[in-house]
Design a protein around this nucleic acid. Sequence first.
DNA 1: CCTAGAAATGATAATCATTATCATGACGGG
DNA 2: CCCGTCATGATAATGATTATCATTTCTAGG
Lengths: 129, 129
Amino acid sequence: MTQVHCTRAQTAVLQVLQQQREPISAQALYTLIKQQQRIGLATVYRALDALKRMGQVQHRVTLTGETLYNAVEQDRHYMTCLDCGQSFPLNTCPLKGLELSLKHSSSFTIYYHTLEFFGLCEPCSVQGG
Amino acid sequence: MTQVHCTRAQTAVLQVLQQQREPISAQALYTLIKQQQRIGLATVYRALDALKRMGQVQHRVTLTGETLYNAVEQDRHYMTCLDCGQSFPLNTCPLKGLELSLKHSSSFTIYYHTLEFFGLCEPCSVQGG
DNA sequence: CCTAGAAATGATAATCATTATCATGACGGG
DNA sequence: CCCGTCATGATAATGATTATCATTTCTAGG
């Protein structure tokens, strides 16, 4: 991974993200970091953008349009119910191994991937989503 | 798929999306539909939201933050370069079959999935992204 | 057909996340 | 110690999305 140099803000953002169990919003990130050091909201976004391009951070957009960020190493994926909107984490990545073979068959250098399933969770499909 | 009843707007949105080769923005969709019928931007968003919940439409967010929509049936995925931002479509879905087995091992009813790879395309990785 | 109630629509205003701007502060090299 | 460069914070600006509300369309009875 192209990890070279991190600014103070980038370090703080990445560290806080790594402490989270679930992806969080930029606003939440801002609030958390502010408890420890002086930081501006714009700087949070700048750091997120830089970290994304370094392949350290990824984001996903929920059904309701919220953008959530998380540290890449977690490799966590979800099944999201189109009816109630709840997201259920997978405990293992279905692509394990597959990504590896892709790495060899293509000239594209893969850092990470995003994967999300959409459909109906059991309760919603029972009540006739 | 829970396809029951479509309003005029939903029909127009879905039809135009199905004609597209690539995902497009809500604004572009609005412009295209307006050439054929009177429609409001808010209605486009409402239709997109409804179609998403019907499992007919999905969206993805580019590196630059643009939200793009496409009809679900295309099952199209991308490799996106973290350096230049370009997206390269995969010609086949790496999850083919895998999703099927997931369907049986879980009580979650899967309609579709999103999948995207991030890393460096060859030119960018050569010049030392 | 005609009509009342419900749902959909269009136009516009309001919201809110993200980005641009710009003056200030930190930092490394000479 | 000073200069140039880059990072930062505060705030204004932007732009996509959502809420509002009056109007139109649709549907089910009658």
